[in-house]
Amino acid sequence: MDFNAQLARQHRADLHAGAAADHLAAAVKPATELRTRVGWTLVGLGLRLVSAPRPVVVLAP
């Protein structure tokens, strides 16, 4: 068998293995990404609530 053909076949197999690994990683990533986004959204909301000016209550005599 020609050396270049054998090398090309091996390279193609490596690419397929890498693509399969990427697909598996992409299937797992959204759950952690969603959790991270929700967490930071809650942190931002908490910071806005803490830094919001509080209304001043004035009691009339």
Rank of each mutant, 00 (worst) to 15 (best):
A17Y: 01
A27E: 12
D22G: 06
L24Q: 15
V43F: 11
D22P: 10
A19V: 09
L45N: 00
V28S: 08
A27Y: 00
G39Y: 12
H16Q: 14
G18V: 02
G18T: 03
R48T: 00
A31H: 08
A27V: 01
G46T: 09
L42S: 15
L24N: 13
A21N: 06
P30K: 01
T41E: 12
A25S: 07
A26L: 15
L47T: 01
V38G: 04
T41C: 14
V43H: 11
L49N: 02
L42D: 07
V50A: 13
A17H: 02
G39R: 06
A26V: 05
G18M: 07
A19G: 05
L47H: 02
R48Y: 01
D22M: 14
T36S: 09
L47S: 04
P30I: 01
L45R: 01
V28E: 07
A19W: 06
A20S: 12
A20G: 00
A17Q: 09
V38T: 12
A25C: 00
V50E: 11
A17D: 03
R35F: 15
L34E: 15
K29T: 11
T36K: 13
A21C: 08
A20V: 06
R35G: 00
L24K: 12
E33N: 09
A31S: 07
G46L: 13
L24D: 14
L24E: 10
T41Y: 14
D22N: 15
A31T: 14
V28P: 09
A20H: 03
H23L: 12
A20K: 00
G44W: 00
A17F: 02
H23Q: 14
L42M: 06
A26F: 12
R37Q: 13
A25R: 04
D22H: 06
V28H: 10
G44V: 01
R35S: 11
A17W: 02
V43A: 06
V28M: 05
D22Y: 08
A25F: 03
E33H: 09
L45T: 03
L42I: 09
G46R: 03
A27Q: 12
H23E: 13
L47C: 04
R37M: 15
L34K: 06
T32F: 15
L15W: 00
D22C: 07
G46S: 14
A27T: 08
V50I: 12
T36A: 15
H16K: 15
T41Q: 13
W40S: 10
A26G: 08
T36I: 06
V50F: 04
D22K: 05
A31G: 06
L34N: 11
